[in-house]
Amino acid sequence: MIINHPLLGPRDSEEFVYLGSADLINRPTNWESEEAAEDFYQYLYIRENIAGDNRELWYHEQGDQSWLVVTRCTLTHEIKSVELAQDVSRAQGRSK
């Protein structure tokens, strides 16, 4: 596969390491609340595992070491968009 890196252009997926759903960005912050156990369980274990456009995390280990959010169709492997995970994370309101 070829991942069109937003900063580096198209690169062979062999340079990357796959992690999984981009939902892993949304780590719960409510560790002190009563719902924490359920929220962390859902966060870590339950997957939509969509047959269609999947937002997923790839790490450019043999490249610029950026984490990317790749939107890729799991039926055709067509890649619709590639974003820096750091940007996505910030856009979702995460900071420090």
């Binding site: 274990y45 997957r47 939509e48 595992n49 799991t74």
Partner: peptide
Amino acid sequence: SSRVMAKAGINLPIES
């Protein structure tokens, strides 16, 4: 599994 169980509204601890 995920595709079929989604029709029953169930998400699973599974990836394909």
